[in-house]
Each structure stands twice: as C-alpha cells, then as structure tokens.
Design a protein around this nucleic acid. Structure first.
Lengths: 328, 328
DNA sequence: CCCCAGCACTAATACGTATTAGCACCTTGA
DNA sequence: TCAAGGTGCTAATACGTATTAGTGCTGGGG
C-alpha cells in the first residue's frame, strides 16, 4: 500500500525541470546558481503538493549535513535509577537543539540483538548525525580517538582529559565549587575536616577531591580523605568538626554519611545536591541544564566551523544550606 | 589532517577484487552469491589491515531502511513539569527500540527559531524515520491524516478514535481500570459517589469518566460528575461517602480534592497514581513503561509489514491503598 | 569435440541528494 | 554583425554500499 515517498525527481517531473534544479531551489540556492522567480515558485509549489521531505540519509551522504545531532549515552538515555541527575541535562540539550533547529538522534547502542554494546561499530554509527554529544562517566578512548581523528565533531558532556585535550567538552567546575565549600567551612572556624569520596576515578570525582584538598592545604587545615565509610565516633575523637561528602548518581557515599552524621553535632556538606532535594544541606548546584545547552551550542559551532572555547567549565551555584555550624 | 576512512573500494584494490565482491564478503553473503574461501579470506585480511568500518550512512541509503524511529511529542520531549508521567513511557520506548536495534529521532519541532509549531511541515518531517511514534493528549487530525494516507507507519501512544480507527495506537484501558475502582467502592458498601474530573476532552479523560459512570450505573449507585471543585460539606449533606478524582499531568483536580477531603471521613480514590507517589491512595497504576515498549513493537511491525493488533489497550494494575473505608 | 552445468566473480545500477562545469540562449554595445 | 557578457538551467558526477543479472571459465558427460 505504501506509496513511495516523493523525491526530488518526482518534483522535477511535475514542475517540468531537472532534479538538479529542484535541489538548487530547495537548498535555498546556496551555490549561487541563478534561477528565475517563476521556476522557483513552480518547484516550491510542486514540492508542497507532493508533500516532499528530504531524505536525511541521502542528504548526509551527499553533503555531510543533515541538521541532526547525535546523543550517545553509555547508559540508557532514559535511565531508571539516576533520572534526577541525567534529566536536566537532557532538558537543556533538547532546548538548545530546538532553538538551533537541530533534531536529535538517540543512539540506543543496539546493534540488532538487545545487548547494549559500546564497541567501535556502535560508536561509529554516530556519524549518521552531523556531530554527536557523548555523555557518561568514562570514555572508550580507542573508539573515541578514531572519531576525533577523522575530524568528526563531538562534544563530551563533562570534563575529559583523555587524548591530551583533543576531546572538546562542556563540564562543571567542580574544583572551584568544592574548594568554595571548604573555604566556607574554614571561614566558620572548622580546622579539621573529613572528606568522604566514592570509589570512582571519573573526572567529576577527582576534580572534587582536588578542590577539597587544595582548598584545605591553602587554608592550612587538616583534611583527611576516606572512601565510603563513616566511623563517626572515631572522627569525633580525632577532633573532626565537619564532614564533606561527594555526591554521585548512586548516592552511596552520601546516604551512608548522612545517616551516620545525623543527630551529631558535626557539620555536614555535600559536593552537589542531596538526592532528597531541598536547600537545607550545604553544597552547590551543578548547572546541568546549562551544560546541556552549551554542549549543543559548542557542537553546532564545531559543525559549522568556528568553535569558541573547546573546553568549557561552567560555574556551580553555591547553596548555603543550614547544615554547617559556626564553631568560632 | 583528516585522512580518509578506508572504503570498500580500497579493500577491493588491495585484495585484487571488485567492490561488489567486498560488499558480498563483508555482508556475510546474504544474497547467496558463491565465493571461494580463498577470496573470502583475502578480502577479510585486507579489510582488517585497513581497519575498515562500514559507513553507516551509505549503508542505510543503499538498503531501504534506516532503522530509525521517530518520536514526536507535542510538548518538549523532556518536559520540565510533568517529568514523572512522561518519563516512564520514554524509558519503555528506548528500551524496546534498543532491543529491536532501532535508533530514535527526537523531533524537536524546531523550524529554526525556538517556538514549537505543530504545523503540517513539522509533522511531515517525521518521514525521515522509518516510522514515528506520536505522543500527546490531542491530535492535529489533518496533518496526521495526510501521513496515514501515504501509508507512513505511525503509532500513537494513548488511545485515539479520530479518523475512524485508522490511527494505530497503544493505550491504557482506563475504562476498565476506572470501573474497577468504582466496583471496589460499591463492594465496600458505598452507594453515593462523587466523581471529580478535569476539564479536558482527551480520551484519557473521557475513558475514565465512561468507566466510572458505567460501573456506577451497573451497580445502581448514584454517581454525580463534577468538574474541578470540592464543596465537601455540601457533598456530605447529600449523603456522599466516597470521592473519586481524575488524575492528569497537571494534578489540579487531585490536589484540590485531596486537600478538601483530608481529615474528613470520606473515602477517597484516584484514577491513577497521586503525584506524591506511595501506595496508600487507592487507585491504579498506568503501565506507562509497557505502553512505550509495545508502541515501539507495534511500530516496527508496521514497518516490516505484518502488524499484530492495530489498537491495543493495556490493563492497568489496581492499587488497593488505604483511603477507601468499609461502610457496610 | 561440443554442450551444459555449475562455479567464482563482476559490471551495472540503485539509493536520493548536492555540486559544479558548462551549454544554449539572450542582450548589449561597438 | 559579432564578440562579450549575462541569464537560466541541466548534464554529469560524487557520496559509499547493496543487489542482481549476468559473464567467463572449468570440468565432466555424451
């Protein structure tokens, strides 16, 4: 039953011109080819009448532009467990893509039978789009390198330092934001702090640690780093007055520490936002939506050829909260 | 810098065969073309040596399908306000798309400058995919009809009865689920019920009303339908013992009624799930994730040519809850 | 010695669009 | 009248792979 979708050749036949003419007219005549107004209108009318829609695959094969941006996530794009942290980014991505007239291709990472693979073929499929956003805590370096080497435009959401800075990214400035949290503690008189981080070496984790450690060092304040455990009584014996905890998608460290600290007189801050929401816990807000927007912006710049800064770190907004006490 | 990616022609040259041979060998020889083991190995070796990876764009142009499913939403795909009700559907869609090896195109509805239009051109663009899912409370009938008429595969998420049943859909059986809620009230002795519904004539609203009204009629129970207001004292004077409220994305009716009923001895049920979550409120669970999955399944069936049932209604899961009292 | 049946492979073409060189025609000015 | 220049359009080709009809070759049977 399916009538074939109309193509330029059909329009050409209807309007009594050649396929090339149709392409020129519909393409907005970028090539500077002369065309009479009369012909132009005839072609447009025919296209309208047939309900023509350009084939994006053919467009891309012929010209390497189809106004589609890829979105490759290393987990499901719509994850079930960490919805709260992914979602705002996606909102930003969609927002900006719409604003710039780009559609989005979600690569499901499926190569036919179910299993989600992130092998080279899967990643290379992103080339169907004009460019692609990548989003995930880790990087399959080899595959990404091949993409980068072919000059394919891509932007990571989140800071990356693999491939000696050849990966463009839009991330959050966790270093400064984390340092600011420590600075605040220091200004309120805390001289002995524990930092609980998770067992992950993604940049978002290491950046936070760096911010905390450097700020503590600058202030001459003691700050020991521990992982994923909360012997609160011991800490208090050691003279600790404040606990800072990393916040990741899993919330693992956060929950453990929060539970242990609750009801004590320890000050408490989180490097991000607590999963339960609210503004009472001291920390900072990651500008996820803005990250999504800027990533799209940068990607489109890469595609069109004059990118701004290839490595962007957006500032996080401090959340004062009420869980840090003045101990001066 | 960009060295050209190797193509089949390069392999062919290296192996001393034709491009067609390369295609046949690398394509796993689906067409039943005979090929000597020797040649096969030579080609594979050459491909390996050059690091060949097929160009997905060309692949998709040459074969008729592009293995992309469209997803057209009448609001932003990633809405900021109704995340909870949209999201599970998207999860299901992505899940099943991945399982069936399909990528997803999100139509941002952008025609250049920001504003989201749903004119014919916007909807027509969905044809760049092999088929498209539509998702929204209302239908731009004229535009959709044109699509349907060309035989373009599409599936609505949510029941639709426009175009005399020519629109395939996967929806939820709100009629039965709503009736079941009333049946439960009746079985607990309620003989006078108020139904508060919202001011919307989308199928999801009218179906709920129908279920409620019919169930009440069958049981010979009084059930008056009101819109969006909650004069609780008046109801109680009239002998009402239970209130049923529709639940939509806006939560408007729900919130009003819930607040008014709270603290009274009126029983209370919702035709869906309350926005605050939990399982204490009597109602039912809409199988959103499953709807997403099945919609994808049906769409792919339409594309490949042997669709099952074009109109599917999925059962909702009853949630007993504790807000309905036994008044026998 | 010829014919036919496989065998191993390839030429040709399709897919739908973009791009570019250039053709045929017209106008203008000398 | 002719060259120069302009106008409006098209032929040809590229993009990289899939598909199919067919071609040349070999060997075996008659």
């Amino acid at each position: 039953m399916t009538r074939r979708a109309p193509r330029q050749a059909d329009i050409a036949a209807l309007a009594g011109v050649s396929q090339a003419t149709v392409s020129v007219v519909l393409g907005g005549n970028q090539g500077g080819v002369r065309m009479s107004e009369d012909t132009r209108l005839r072609v447009l009318a025919a296209a309208e009448k047939l309900g023509y829609v350009p084939d994006p695959v053919a467009t891309r094969l012929a010209s390497r532009r189809n106004h589609m941006l890829g979105l490759y996530t290393f987990k499901a794009t719509f994850p079930t467990d960490v919805a709260d942290s992914y979602y705002p980014i996606l909102v930003g991505v969609e927002e900006q893509a719409a604003a710039l007239g780009q559609d989005l291709i979600l690569f499901t990472g499926a190569d036919g039978r179910g299993e989600r693979t992130h092998d080279e073929a899967a990643i290379r499929r992103t080339k169907i789009a004009d460019g692609c956003l990548f989003f995930g805590r880790h990087v399959p370096v080899a595959s990404i390198e091949k993409l980068v080497e072919t000059g394919f435009p891509l932007v990571y959401i989140g800071r990356r330092d693999e491939l000696e800075g050849r990966i463009p990214f839009v991330g959050a400035d966790y270093v400064s934001a984390s340092a600011a949290v420590v600075d605040r503690l220091v200004s309120l008189g805390h001289r002995n702090v524990r930092y609980v981080r998770e067992n992950d070496d993604a940049p978002s984790s290491t950046d936070r640690e760096r911010g905390v450690v450097e700020a503590a060092a600058r202030a001459g304040v003691e700050c020991r780093v521990v992982r994923d455990e909360a012997p609160v009584d011991e800490w208090r014996r050691d003279g600790v007055t404040a606990v800072v905890v990393e916040e990741t998608d899993t919330h693992a460290a956060y929950r453990a520490v929060r539970a242990a600290v609750d009801g004590t007189d320890l000050s408490f801050a989180v490097l991000g936002r607590p999963p339960e929401g609210g503004t009472d816990v001291t920390g900072f807000e990651v500008p996820r939506r803005e990250m999504g927007r800027r990533a799209v912006e940068l990607l489109v710049e890469l595609i069109t050829g004059d990118p701004g800064d290839l490595h962007q770190l957006l500032p996080c907004t401090p959340v004062p909260g009420t869980t840090v006490k003045d101990v001066r």
